[in-house]
Structure formats: C-alpha cells, structure tokens
Amino acid sequence: MRINGNTIFIPGATSGIGLALALRLHDAGNQVVIGGRRTELLADIAAQHPGIDTVRIDTADAASIAAAAHEVIARHPDLNVLVTMAGIMRAEDWTTPGSFLENAEATVTTNLLGPIRLISAFVEHLLAQPDATIMTVSSGLAFAPLRVTPTYNATKAAIHQLSETLRLQFAGSSVSVVELVPPSVQTELMPGHQDDPFAMPLAEYIDETMTILETQPDAAEVQVERVKFLRYGEARGDQAQVIRALNGSDALAAN
C-alpha cells in the first residue's frame, strides 16, 4: 500500500486507533472518509479536520453497510482503500451459564460479519481500480488467547485467516490485502484501558505503524515490535510461556 495519493474509507474511525490512523493518513496526503454511528461525533471530526469526509455507518447492520457503501462510492468514485477498523472487545465468563451469549453474538456480528459485509459491499468497486487495498484489523490475540475475551480472540483469529486466504484469492489482481496486527494500545476499547500503563501509547503505535507503511509498502502484515511477542510464540516454541505471561497480567493484552 502506498502511503499517499489514496482515497481511503475507514469505518469505525471516530476514536482510538481508527481515528488516530485516519488523521495521520490524511496528513500524509490521502483523501480520508471516516465512518461511524454517531452523526454528532462525525460532524465534530469534520469541523476540526477540514478535508476529512464522514459518513454514518453501523457495521453491525447489513443494511447500513450497503447504504454507506453506495454513498461513499458515489461521493468518492476514486476510492481505492478500505480499512475494516470497527470492532468491539467484551469480557465473557463462559463458566457462568447465561452470562456471555449476548456479548459473544455481538462480538461476532461486529468483528467478523462486519468486515465480511464491508468487503463484500466494496469488492466490485475495488477490483475496478488500478491499485487498491483492503486493510483488515486483527490483533495479537489472534495468536495468543487472553482468558477474559474468548470470542474477541476467536474473531481476530478468524480475521487473520480471512486475510491470509483473501490474499491468495486476490493474487494477480489490482487488490492487495494488508493485515494490521495491533498489540495492546491505550484506547477505550475496554473500560480503563486508555490508562493502562502497560499498553502501548496510542501516539507511539501510530508513529511506528506509519513508518512501516511508508518503508514497507509491500508488507502483508503491519506488525509493530511490541506485538511480535504474541505473534510468534508458536514459531519460537515458547507459546506456553507467552500465554502464561499474557494471562498473568492484563498488561500484555492485545488490542
């Protein structure tokens, strides 16, 4: 993925990693369209950052995705990058019957069906572009499980495999597939996580991510150094130790 000259749609970019990445990509010389559910928040972002466009979208709603895709493509026919950023992370205790199903279903709908539906809505348009990118967002927890977030872990593992497989299917086309693999980052993804001293500061994460995008334009996975502890436990042969460390302290949780 080239670092500038793109038209990029990022649903789920009204806060956290999504917003920070959107602003940096805008500053790098891209047309950025931010998607989110809250119209007042979208209006505030557009007012504070002239040149950024916004569209309302609820990635848990198939009809909303279809309507937003139609709107974005109509307003920005040169759109060539889709970043499937939107996601939720909720604690679940599967040993307590009846306590987890609602959260588990919501997580699957947002974190897995959302990206699938988004890609489906945009893929015909992206294939018609001379140079296009689908950027998925998995997690270090796709590779090492955090005990308190079983469905989140599972959806991010699924996103990783989806990314790997789509890369095979799109080989030889104009569409590349890039997987963003965040570690634990100081955002509001879970209550209090934005103040976690063991999580990676958001500005540091975005700085390193932008450097990777600029210096490694053909990277299949965007991995900052901090996520490699989780990403390569099996390859190093120390996965059991990784899992113990991860679950001994939530400080090593991935985004």
Rank of each mutant, 00 (worst) to 15 (best):
R24M: 02
T133L: 03
D218I: 01
P191T: 12
L21N: 01
T59G: 06
L41I: 14
A67W: 09
D195A: 14
E164G: 06
A203G: 12
A254M: 09
A68V: 12
L112K: 08
E188Y: 04
G233S: 09
D250I: 04
L230T: 03
L141Q: 15
D53T: 05
T187P: 11
I3W: 00
H125N: 07
S139A: 00
V32K: 04
D195H: 13
T54C: 06
L23Y: 00
E40K: 10
L127H: 06
V137I: 01
T95K: 06
G98A: 03
W94K: 02
H26R: 08
Q31P: 01
K228F: 07
A251F: 12
T209S: 13
Y152N: 09
G140R: 01
A66N: 10
E234R: 15
T165D: 03
I45A: 10
T107D: 10
S139M: 00
Q194A: 15
E234T: 13
G248I: 06
S139N: 02
V242N: 02
G248W: 05
M1A: 07
N30W: 02
T110A: 15
V222K: 02
A254C: 10
S174M: 01
V224N: 11
L82C: 13
S99L: 06
G87W: 07
T59S: 08
A154E: 07
E102M: 10
D44S: 10
M190A: 15
A66S: 14
S139R: 00
W94V: 12
N111I: 15
A67I: 11
R226G: 12
N111G: 14
H125V: 09
T149I: 14
L213H: 01
L180R: 09
F100D: 08
Q239R: 12
D250G: 13
A74S: 14
R236D: 14
T149L: 08
L168D: 01
E188V: 09
T215F: 00
H160M: 11
P191F: 08
T149C: 08
A253T: 07
M210F: 03
A67D: 15
T95I: 02
S173T: 08
T54G: 02
